[in-house]
Amino acid sequence: MSLYRTELRRLGKRRFTRYMTLLGLLVLAAVIASAFFTNQKVGPDQIAAAEREAKANYQQAVRDTEQARTECERVKADGGSVSSRGFPENCAEIMPPPPEAFDPQWSLPPTFRFHEDFGETLLTFAMLLAVVGFVVGASYVGAEWNTGGMMNLLLWRPKRLTVLLTKLAALLTGTAVVTVLAAALWTLCFWLVGHFRGTTTEVTPGLWRSLGLTELRALALVLAVTTVGFAVASLGRHTAFALGGAMAFLVVGQYGVAIALSLADVRFPDAWLVPTYAMAWIKKQVTLQDYQACIATPTGGCMPDELTITWQQSSLLLGAGLMIALVAAMWAMRRRDVA
């Protein structure tokens, strides 16, 4: 227990931990500020302005149509080819769109609907904190190996797995505390954004339960990615091993794979990319579409083929990755000499 408390203190004392956490929180704050300033409340004035804009757009379309029809008839009277100018053979067919086509809804300014939009923001929240967790986790143990701190500690506590897992426990505790507090602030801030720059109506107990579960999944993702960063850095005994590995994985394993799959004309190439599974984990499911396939509809139309990835499938993949990294780090800690 004393080792655990000491590791918590060590984690909190590290400047890199503090700076990275602060940086992550500042980026989250910037996202909130951006949402606040780019949205606005929709009232009678905004609706009236939107209706005016829709009406003006319709009138402009009528004028443009009239002008096109006149031009078409002129070309026809001159004996020219109307089709070469892009007009139909019968100039009377050039008609303005109906007034209903100009929905004032489209002209409304962006507004934050908490019940619809907040869930989407949790993906940004989870991804950002996961990146922070990965870097902090990697640096926390990587710097210990690099500066000889781990060796010093093992001279005091010659139980390697206990030391490694206690460090991990302290790291996850710190990450969980920061994530939970940040999630609470994130929710509150977006509630306020909705209140002042949108709407917070239609929020039911069911929606809160759903958002709570999404935030729990976001917490799990952050902790899992943090653990992977910690485990990979411990495996390579250097922070750069994890950061370089992550970079190589993204560049080669993700962008490279994506390009290769698209060149090979593979169906649903996104199904081979890890971020898709992270997204499915947070959003409960992701539906991929293959626009090259045609699924016939009863009305004679054509629908793209679909592949749905669920959070359960994601949990298997992400869990397997987590376990492989952690077990490898524990094995290396137990077997390799500390030289």
Binding site: S2, R5, T6, E7, N152, L153, W156
Partner: peptide, 11 residues
């Protein structure tokens, strides 16, 4: 700090 953390870890 260095010694304090070691003292904490070693009780």
């Amino acid at each position: 700090d260095t010694l304090d953390l070691l003292a904490g870890a070693g009780e």
